[in-house]
Simulated scan of single mutants.
Amino acid sequence: MKHPLLAVTGAVAAMLVAAGGLGAHWLGAPWALVLLAGLLVVVVALGWPQMLGAPARKSLTAVLALTGLGAAVAVVLWPGRAPGEGIEDFGASLIEPIAVAIALGVVAAFMVQLFRGSGSPHRLESTAGTITGVAAVSSAAAWVALARYDAGPFVFSVGVSLALAALAGLVPIPGRAGRGLSAALSVVLAGAVPWLLTGSWAAVVAGALGGLTLVLLGQLAPERGRGRPVGLRAAWALGAAPVAVAGLVAYFVFRIMPA
């Protein structure tokens, strides 16, 4: 990630997800991850409009927060069979509430701009940026979906790997090639750590792809001065958002590959 604040925020968010995975596993219920996914959502929702430089920030924050929190709770309450009682039907159903939340969030984003009235500045940019944020906050619910599979060790290993991947971007490697080497180090660490913790190829692939997600989204940070992200809340949001998105990546890898 470009800036230490983004990297530290991403690492803390990833470790909270890892802790939530273990908590959900020990409790036998996904509510620990619901709480931590909700924290991710709130952090992103508070900073995303600031990062966009969008007007009507309170309204957009409310849209993002309600969408993400609604998706996390809906995944828990969504009807589905236990993994041993028809895993295909169970897995297919858990992505549905996330898709529904994204659709409702997109509609709400358009409604906010309509209420602002014609001639309001930055309507197109605000709408596009809010829709991107809606997708990011809703993706955090995928960590909760993994908890319903009792995939706590999988979530823990991927979360730890994402934390190390975020911090690896801080390794000072001079020269123009330094950024590429730091990014490669992040992805390699994110893939190697899950293998050491679980020996699962699904966790390895999920960690590597999640690390790549952190690297790519971290490059989107707007800069001011010496590479400092614009606004403290914006930096927190940009640090936490890739961890939320990585949840959806991990979910699909878990569904496709044997753990």
Results as ranks from 00 to 15, higher is better:
Ser157Tyr: 10
Val158Ser: 13
Gly159Leu: 09
Ser161Phe: 10
Ser161Cys: 11
Ser161Lys: 09
Leu162Val: 00
Ala163Gly: 15
Ala163Cys: 12
Leu164Phe: 15
Ala165Cys: 14
Ala165Glu: 05
Ala166Ser: 15
Ala166Cys: 15
Ala166Pro: 15
Ala166Thr: 07
Leu167Gln: 00
Leu167Tyr: 01
Ala168Met: 11
Gly169Phe: 02
Leu170Ile: 13
Val171Phe: 13
Val171His: 03
Pro172Gln: 08
Pro172Glu: 04
Pro172Leu: 12
Ile173Glu: 05
Pro174Met: 08
Arg176Ile: 10
Arg176Asp: 14
Ala177Cys: 12
Ala177Asp: 14
Gly178Tyr: 14
Gly178Pro: 14
Gly178Gln: 14
Arg179Thr: 15
Arg179Pro: 06
Arg179Phe: 08
Gly180Tyr: 08
Leu181Trp: 10
Ala183Phe: 05
Ala183Asn: 13
Leu185Pro: 00
Leu185Trp: 05
Ser186Ile: 13
Ser186Ala: 15
Val187Asp: 11
Leu189Glu: 07
Ala190Cys: 12
Ala190His: 04
Pro194Gly: 03
Pro194Arg: 01
Trp195Gly: 11
Leu196Asp: 08
Leu196Glu: 10
Leu197Val: 00
Leu197Ser: 01
Thr198Ala: 06
Gly199Trp: 03
Ser200Ile: 08
Ser200Gly: 12
Trp201Phe: 13
Ala202Tyr: 02
Ala202Lys: 06
Ala202Glu: 07
Ala203Arg: 10
Ala203Ser: 15
Val204Glu: 04
Ala206Val: 06
Ala208Trp: 09
Ala208Ile: 07
Ala208Val: 02
Gly210Phe: 04
Leu212Met: 13
Leu212Cys: 14
Val215Leu: 04
Leu216Asn: 06
Gly218Lys: 02
Gly218Arg: 01
Gly218Cys: 12
Gln219His: 06
Leu220Tyr: 01
Leu220Lys: 01
Ala221Ser: 09
Arg224Trp: 04
Gly225His: 09
Gly225Arg: 05
Gly227Asp: 05
Gly227Ile: 05
Pro229Lys: 10
Pro229Ala: 08
Leu232Phe: 13
Leu232Met: 05
Leu232Ser: 12
Ala235Val: 03
